[in-house]
């Protein structure tokens, strides 16, 4: 069986999109499961940058139009600049306001309980 170039591009594009979506979901799971602000930030900051990149690359492979590819490329460059900077700004703001990372297990347990109560307070019923 011979694979022509279109099929290969199509498969590659689908692969990129799948990985991107998986990373998005894992980032979402991370934000719900991790114990404190900084680890959550880490989960979302790292995975989202890569996920957005992967999805954009997947879309570029899908599209034959050169102009669209260039536009997507510019969005990719912008995301690579902006996402890490935003994460940095968030983490810095949190640290500046005296939020300390949770370091040992007992604290994690405590904060989990605390989070439970606050989450219940905040979340819409």
């Amino acid at each position: 069986m011979t694979l022509d170039i279109n099929t290969i591009v199509e498969i590659l594009s689908g692969f990129c999109l799948l990985i991107g979506s998986f990373l998005c979901i894992s980032g979402g799971v991370g934000i719900l499961r991790f114990p404190d602000f900084y680890t959550r930030m880490h989960a979302v900051g790292v995975t989202d940058t890569l996920a957005a990149g992967m999805i954009l690359v997947g879309l570029m492979l899908q599209n034959p139009d050169a102009l669209v590819v260039i536009k997507l490329l510019m969005i990719l460059v912008m995301t690579l600049f902006i996402n890490p900077t935003a994460s940095h700004a968030l983490a810095k703001a949190a640290f500046h306001n005296g939020l300390m990372p949770v370091l040992d297990d007992t604290e994690i347990l405590n904060s989990k309980e605390r989070n439970k109560t606050t989450d219940n307070d905040l979340e819409p019923k």
């Binding site: 912008m78 600049f81 902006i82 940095h88």
Partner: peptide, 12 residues
């Protein structure tokens, strides 16, 4: 860091 990145982005 914010300043440097912003300075690069604002023209765009």
């Amino acid at each position: 860091i914010l300043r440097i990145v912003t300075k690069m982005l604002i023209p765009f």
